[in-house]
């Protein structure tokens, strides 16, 4: 028998994987490094968290470990994207041509 909790979990997993897909699509479509970091890391953070949440709902024994994974991703993902963006700016990767302003270079 399939109960509602399992179906809810499966739907949440599906939504999460769609976000992961959109994040990678952004990775291909965006014109410069910083925009790629934005779409790549943001969409993949929520996508992974939703996927894990769905699996945790379907398999409640694993909730502790999956919660740990979720917290870990929520903490490390912004840090790694920030560090990459800083390194990219440090080696003077150019912004795309339609960019409006760059205050960091001015100072």
């Amino acid at each position: 028998m399939e109960n509602t909790l399992e179906i809810t979990g499966a739907i949440i997993t599906l939504i999460g994987s769609i976000f992961l897909f959109l994040g990678s699509l952004g990775l291909v479509r965006m014109p410069d490094i910083y925009n790629r970091i934005q779409t790549g890391t943001k969409a993949s953070t929520l996508g992974t968290i939703l996927t894990l949440l769905g699996i945790a709902l379907m398999n409640t024994d694993w909730f502790g470990k999956i919660l740990l994974l979720m917290i870990f991703i929520l903490i490390t993902n912004p840090v790694s994207s920030h560090v990459l963006a800083r390194a990219a700016h440090y080696i003077k990767s150019p912004l795309t041509k339609i960019s409006v302003t760059d205050k960091l270079v001015d100072n």
């Binding site: 976000f19 959109l22 994040g23 699509l25 952004g26 479509r29 965006m30 014109p31 410069d32 910083y34 925009n35 934005q38 779409t39 943001k42 969409a43 953070t45 929520l46 996508g47 912004l95 795309t96 339609i98 960019s99 409006v100 302003t101 760059d102 205050k103 960091l104 270079v105 100072n107």
Partner: peptide
């Protein structure tokens, strides 16, 4: 805000004309 940001990203990625106006602010 996290959920809003993801829908924002999804909208920008799926729009064919790519509506972005990036820049670095202080």
């Amino acid at each position: 805000e996290l959920i809003k940001s993801n829908f924002d990203v999804a909208r920008r990625v799926l729009t064919p004309s790519l509506p972005i106006k990036p820049g670095i602010v202080e």
